[in-house]
Amino acid sequence: ENVVSAPMPGKVLRVLVRVGDRVRVGQGLLVLEAMKMENEIPSPRDGVVKRILVKEGEIDDTGQPLIELG
């Protein structure tokens, strides 16, 4: 899985990584606010952040691509 998608609709509060960062499975990639709760979205695998497809403050839909890993 190279693309991390939104598991729920919500607002992107914080992006915790930058392009080029090495990430490990379970590491937080970004924080979504949904139903007044903050949810940290973890990396599904080890890899390198290739692209960040959303910006802080954006509203996303379920299934929307958020981050691409390489």
Rank of each mutant, 00 (worst) to 15 (best):
E1G: 13
R14N: 03
D61N: 12
V15L: 12
G70A: 14
I41V: 10
V25R: 14
G70T: 14
E56N: 08
K11Y: 09
D60E: 15
P9I: 08
G10L: 05
V48H: 08
T62I: 14
N39A: 12
S5A: 12
G26M: 05
V3H: 08
M37Q: 12
V23K: 01
P44Q: 04
V25Q: 13
G70Y: 15
V12N: 00
P42K: 15
V54R: 05
V31H: 02
G70H: 14
E1N: 13
D46T: 08
E1Y: 13
G28P: 15
V54Q: 03
E58Q: 12
P44M: 05
E68H: 09
V4G: 02
L66D: 01
V17D: 00
I41K: 01
V31G: 00
G10F: 10
P7Y: 07
L53D: 03
S5E: 08
M37I: 13
V19W: 04
R18F: 07
M35L: 12
I67L: 10
K36I: 06
G28Y: 09
L30Q: 00
P44D: 05
V25G: 07
N2P: 06
N39K: 13
E33H: 08
G63Q: 07
L66F: 05
V17M: 01
K55E: 12
S43H: 01
D21V: 07
G70Q: 14
P44Y: 04
G63F: 07
E68D: 05
G57D: 06
V31T: 06
V17I: 07
P65D: 06
M8T: 09
L29T: 02
R45Q: 09
L53A: 03
D46M: 07
G10A: 06
D46H: 08
V54L: 06
K50F: 11
R14Y: 05
G26C: 08
A34N: 13
D21H: 06
S43M: 02
V25M: 13
L29D: 00
P9F: 09
I59T: 10
L66R: 02
E1F: 13
P42T: 14
L30Y: 06
L69W: 04
I52Q: 01
R18G: 08
V23S: 02
V15R: 01
D60L: 15
P9C: 11
I52L: 06
I52N: 00
D60G: 15
S43A: 11
V54N: 02
R22M: 12
I52E: 01
A34M: 12
V48Y: 14
P7W: 08
D60M: 15
A34Q: 09
G28T: 15
L16Y: 05
V17C: 08
V15P: 00
G63V: 05
T62K: 13
S5H: 14
Q27E: 07
P65C: 07
D60N: 15
D61C: 13
S43V: 02
Q27K: 04
P42Q: 13
S5G: 09
E56D: 08
R18C: 11
R14I: 07
A6N: 06
N2R: 09
V31M: 05
D60Y: 15
N2K: 08
V49K: 01
T62M: 13
V17S: 00
P42N: 10
P7V: 07
P65W: 10
R18Y: 06
G70K: 12
I52T: 02
K50D: 05
